[in-house]
Amino acid sequence: MPYAAPRICQCGRVVATGMRCGCQAQRDRERKARHDQNRPSARQRGYDSKWQKEAKAFLATHSRCVMCGAPSRVVDHATPHKGNRKLFWSRSNWQPLCTFCHSSRKQSMEKRR
């Protein structure tokens, strides 16, 4: 089976197919750091001790991920609340997810919207 040829990065380095150049990874780290500087902390976004208590109770009654059926570990907002406190606390907007589905599948779905 033939392999694709390596490519030349913008910095001039030869990069194997399917790999990322170090300069690209560095740019991504810098971009994410700039974004995180402007982002409120989890506590400021509402994920405080009250949330932890409610999420734990929710997961006690909803033990399976709605996407894959694995044991759920995360309470996710089906519709992103974007600071809307009423939507944030609406249990009808909560869904149990496993860590994998929350960190990969759900994030990919939200990026496509």
Rank of each mutant, 00 (worst) to 15 (best):
A4R: 14
A4S: 13
A5H: 13
R7F: 15
C9V: 00
C9F: 01
Q10I: 01
Q10L: 02
Q10F: 00
C11Q: 05
C11A: 09
G12P: 03
V14G: 02
V15C: 02
A16T: 08
A16G: 12
T17D: 02
M19W: 13
M19P: 06
R20E: 07
C21A: 05
C21R: 00
C21I: 03
G22C: 01
A25Y: 07
A25S: 09
A25P: 00
Q26R: 05
Q26I: 08
Q26W: 06
D28G: 05
D28M: 12
E30G: 11
K32F: 11
R34S: 07
H35S: 14
H35T: 15
D36E: 11
D36T: 06
N38M: 01
R39H: 02
S41C: 04
A42W: 05
A42E: 03
R45W: 00
G46Y: 00
G46M: 01
Y47G: 11
Y47R: 05
D48Q: 03
D48S: 04
D48L: 02
K50W: 03
W51K: 00
W51C: 01
W51Y: 04
Q52V: 07
K53Y: 00
K53P: 04
E54R: 10
A57K: 04
A57V: 03
A57M: 05
A57S: 13
L59N: 10
C65G: 05
M67N: 14
C68V: 09
G69K: 06
A70K: 14
P71A: 14
S72I: 02
R73V: 04
V75K: 04
D76S: 09
H77R: 09
H77K: 06
A78Q: 14
A78G: 07
T79S: 06
P80Q: 14
H81G: 13
H81W: 10
K82T: 03
K82V: 04
N84Q: 12
N84G: 10
N84M: 10
N84L: 11
N84V: 12
R85D: 11
S90I: 04
S92F: 06
N93G: 03
W94I: 06
W94Q: 00
Q95I: 09
P96N: 00
L97T: 02
C98Y: 04
C98F: 05
T99E: 15
T99I: 07
T99G: 15
T99Q: 10
F100Q: 11
F100A: 11
F100N: 12
C101M: 06
C101G: 08
H102I: 00
H102E: 08
S103C: 13
S103N: 14
S103V: 06
S104F: 07
K106F: 06
K106R: 01
Q107T: 06
Q107V: 02
S108D: 14
S108R: 13
M109L: 14
M109C: 11
E110I: 11
E110F: 09
K111D: 15
K111H: 13
R112C: 10
R112V: 10
R113E: 14
